[in-house]
Design a protein around this nucleic acid. Structure first.
Length: 887
DNA sequence: GAATATACTTAGAAGGGTCGAT
DNA sequence: ATCGACCCTTCTAAGTATATTC
């Protein structure tokens, strides 16, 4: 059985429609949410085997996750200056004029320390409104007493206890605070750092063939020379195909033809130029000042920069977000404390701030840039490209490879998705002192393009990153990796898909096993089986635990009771926020046992308790490994997406279809996968409007075709009988025709006027006399007469052309229009159905590119129609498949 | 064994570039 | 040649997975 059709009612894949309102979510049919829910609680569970062991299904109340706030400690008032963290950046500031490090603000500190104490205080009614669809996990603060949980644990048999992690008290992981280790400033950080870092620095004295590689590297550094005809590299692969200046194209390393390495060592030699830092902050011109309480505010660069971050956003949705504003303002105030306005104005009230002058200045600058001539823009771009050139590539084992994100993230305001508690917080400027480099130990250590020294330089060839740093807002790690088209990324991508294909060979057994386990007497196993069922059928994400200072989103293992609703006899309604706070709403029929299980799992729990309190992703993956080597939860998503795609393509592509029809079949399959994976985008504001435009255009085509038919009818009655001319233009009515003709006339007149004016201009330029206005009048009169005739023709079923044409020509023209109309119909459907589905994500990450490559070969479709240039560069390894290749 | 650290993949928004219609 | 819709790239946030630490 295919991975998705467990739904016996109709074997469409279960999809994950979009949230809410717009109706296109229910593939399975008119799904509307039933009014009656939880009718089942009364059902007795005959085979509720768990009873004994689980007699107290004590829900480990999953209190909220949430990690501790990174900087939350100082609850005291405003001594933020003293916060240790602040110190670090500040230091640098001195040394670097303009580079505002100032932004030392400890991401909003204090305050909201929802101490556990306060949590305890939260009353239960916070959970009370269970039917409120919005799962506000509001309760973050609360830590429900572990109550029975303890008991339960003891009573359960070992295998069966709730995972400790989910105990309320344990709550979630927290991220470690960002340390400012810059202390030891100026030491020869390089080697020493590596030493102190226990990390896997094994690379230190690994054997490598430096000499040889080195030589090669040097050679390839001179790409130019090479392009000129003297291949420096010894690779031999480089045939003379250099013809076009495909210098960047240079020989692609055909790693997929080479021997696979061991896997853990990622490279032997690595040379690169580090990262590029954004330019230091430049103050605004003196005439641009924001206002506070109506008065101009004279800000030092450090605080002006931060104000500018916000000013740029005042027209965006972010500025409408209270949390965003609050976080920004707190952080900005901290900066202001250190870098106050010159006149010492106290900025205390957000509502008194007027950032508009700054905003307008930015807009004007943007406009200025846009107004530059093409040549000027090109020039600027070239300057930038030249400056960045050396950072764009690196030498990996002597081969030139593209680097991905070599630009260090500039400072700004953190734009968290959804209800992220830190959104709007100030993200500091990153300095060399924050960055660790990873580079071959024989490679020269690059010098930062701004003053400063790297935090450390290590030589770890078991990882692929070139640089890393820790971001201050959430303490997350950032990395610089190679680009998507690099050999390293390509290899792991191919491995990913091969692993997903391997799952084909095990999936039957795995399904058999978990189907068994759905009835297991061991609660933990039963829950695990149920999560596997969802992950397999619905392609849900694994659902790791999240910390307290993150948006409240969930995946399969972290679902809470409030996220699933039962609807008899066998439907489950999922409604939760997943990755990126994208809503997942899906009403699906499920196996009777699954239905029963969910009912059991929900028993005696409150809405914000974990549904699968005995399952976590680590345990789940461990189990999966035992079913198939290398299997993890995410493999199911890849597997489901790619196999669904392959099947749909096979089913939907008709042999003799036109190119457009084939493309549509492809996009349709792509779209179904995107729906399965719940990949969404916000509907462009202009969508409806542009739909109407296209529809109108299509009606125009139909109108033209109708007119041509009428011409034929007038020429010879026999045409009226021809079957292909019987069809009616159903969606153009008389009213529309009238307005269409009027429109058309107006446009033609306007065109005639323009043309006339142009002709006259030309004449006078040539020193001749301009035409008389009467000429224009004549022309317009002609047009009007023409349209008068059209008006008369209305309803007669007959028409004539301004210029006569032979019947065959007209028939040909009709044929062409028919094709155009057909194509446009398809396009319209395609577009409307896809308005909120993002196809790109699945194409980039989930669909085995070999499916596409093979399909293109069989159906004679140029792959460029489906893959952008970057995708083609990303998937070189897939382009050579045999046409009969199947996922 | 939970918490944390690390490294890598997956994700939508924003903004810029391109391309087709006029 | 201009304009605007849309496609693509860029950016960086937000996941997954597993190793390491306490």
């Amino acid at each position: 059985m295919s991975p998705v059709d467990f739904d016996s009612d109709d074997d469409k894949p279960l999809r994950a429609p979009n949230g809410g309102s717009n109706g296109h979510h229910h593939p399975n049919g008119n799904g509307h949410v039933p009014t009656q829910q939880r009718a089942l609680s009364s059902m007795s569970d005959d085979e509720m085997p768990l009873a004994t062991q689980d007699s107290s299904p004590l829900p480990a109340t999953r209190t909220l996750k949430r990690k501790k706030p990174v900087y939350a400690e100082s609850s005291s008032d405003d001594s933020e200056d003293d916060t240790p963290l602040a110190a670090t950046p500040a230091k640098v500031a001195v040394a670097m004029p303009g580079a505002i490090q100032a932004t030392t603000v400890p991401a909003n500190g204090k305050g909201k320390a929802k101490s556990n104490v306060s949590k305890a205080a939260v009353s239960d009614d916070e959970y009370a409104d269970s039917d409120a669809p919005k799962r506000k996990r509001a309760a973050k603060p609360k830590a429900k007493p572990p109550k029975k949980k303890v008991k339960q644990e003891s009573s359960d048999d070992d295998d069966d206890k709730p995972l400790a992690a989910k105990k309320p008290s344990t709550s979630r992981k927290r991220k470690v605070k960002v340390e400012s280790d810059v202390e030891s400033d100026d030491e020869p950080i390089a080697k020493k750092a590596a030493a102190k870092k226990p990390r896997k620095v094994k690379s230190e004295e690994t054997e490598k063939p430096p000499a040889k590689v080195k030589a090669e590297a040097n050679g390839s550094a001179t790409v130019k020379a090479e392009a000129n005809g003297s291949p420096v590299k010894g690779k031999g692969k480089k045939k003379e195909k250099e013809k076009k200046e495909d210098e960047e194209q240079e020989e692609v390393f055909r790693w997929w033809d080479a021997d696979a390495g061991d896997g853990s060592v990622k490279w032997q030699t690595l040379e690169h130029n580090g990262v590029i830092f954004p330019p230091p902050y430049e103050s605004l011109p003196p005439n641009v000042k924001m206002k506070y309480n109506g008065k101009e505010l004279d800000l030092p660069p450090a605080s002006e920069e931060v104000a500018g971050f916000y000013a740029a956003l005042i027209e965006s949705d972010h500025a409408k977000d209270a949390k965003f504003n609050e976080n920004f303002f707190n952080d900005w105030k901290t900066v202001l404390k250190k870098y106050p306005p010159l006149d010492n104005t106290k900025v205390t009230n957000f509502d008194l701030c007027d950032f508009r002058p700054m905003f307008e200045y930015f807009e004007a600058e943007k406009a200025k840039k846009k107004a530059l001539s093409a040549a000027e823009k090109k020039e600027l771009k070239k300057i930038k490209d030249d400056m960045e050139a050396k950072y764009t590539t690196c030498l990996l084992d002597g081969r030139k490879e593209k680097v991905g994100n070599f630009r260090v993230e500039p400072p700004g305001l953190f734009r968290g998705r959804g209800e992220h508690p830190k959104k709007g917080a100030l993200k500091f400027r990153v300095r060399p002192e924050d960055i660790s480099l990873n580079i071959g130990d024989n490679a020269p250590v690059p010098v930062p393009n701004i003053p400063g020294k790297w935090k450390e330089v290590i030589h770890d060839n078991t990882v692929t990153w070139l640089a890393t740093w820790t971001e201050n807002v959430n303490g997350n790690h950032k990395y610089v990796f190679l680009a998507a088209g690099s050999s390293l990324k390509g290899q792991s991508d191919m491995i990913k898909f091969e692993k997903a294909r391997e799952l084909k060979n095990h999936v039957d057994k795995i399904r058999q096993n978990y189907t068994q386990d759905l009835k297991s007497k061991v609660m933990a196993d039963r829950q695990r089986a149920t999560t596997m069922y969802f992950i397999d059928k619905l392609a849900l994400r694994a659902g790791n635990e999240k910390g307290e200072d993150e948006a409240d989103t969930v995946g399969c293992c972290s679902l809470r009771c409030e996220h699933v609703t039962l609807e008899a006899p066998n439907f489950i309604i999922f409604d939760f926020l997943g990755k990126d706070s994208i809503r997942y709403y899906n009403r699906v029929p499920v196996d009777a046992q699954v239905f029963k299980n969910i009912r059991i799992f929900k028993e005696n729990k409150s809405d914000n308790d974990s549904l699968f309190d005995r399952v976590n992703t680590t345990g789940l993956n461990k189990h999966l490994q035992s079913e198939m080597k290398g299997l993890t939860a995410k493999v199911f998503r890849t597997f489901n997406a790619s196999s669904t795609f392959q099947r749909l393509l096979d089913e939907n592509t008709l042999e003799n279809a036109t190119l457009q029809e084939k493309l549509n079949a492809y996009n349709k399959a792509n779209r179904e996968v995107a729906i399965l994976c719940n990949h969404r985008r916000t509907v462009p504001k202009t969508h409806e409007q542009s739909m109407e435009k296209v529809r109108d255009k299509q009606r125009g085509l139909k109108y033209d075709r109708m007119k041509l038919r009428h011409v034929l009818f007038k020429m010879d009655k026999k045409f009226r009988k021809k079957a292909e001319y019987q069809e009616d233009e159903s969606d153009i009515d008389d009213e529309w025709i009238v307005s269409h003709e009027e429109d058309k006339m107006a446009k033609e007149i306007e065109k005639a006027e323009k043309k006339f004016a142009k002709e006259n201009e030309k004449l006078t330029d040539d020193g001749k006399e301009a035409q008389d206005d009467s000429e224009l009048k004549d022309r317009i009169a002609n047009i009007k007469a023409e349209f008068k005739r059209l008006a008369k023709e209305r309803g007669t079923g007959e028409a004539e052309l301004t210029r006569e044409k032979p019947a065959e020509k007209i028939e040909e023209a009709i044929q062409k229009l028919t094709e155009k109309i057909k194509a446009s119909k398809l396009q319209i459907i395609d577009r409307d159905e896809g308005k909120e589905v993002a196809l790109g994500t699945s194409k980039i990450n989930y669909l085995d590119p070999r499916i596409t490559a093979a399909w293109c070969k069989i159906h004679d479709v140029p792959v460029e129609k489906l893959f952008s240039k970057t995708l083609i560069v990303k998937f070189p390894w897939a382009m050579e498949v045999e046409e009969d290749w199947k996922f």
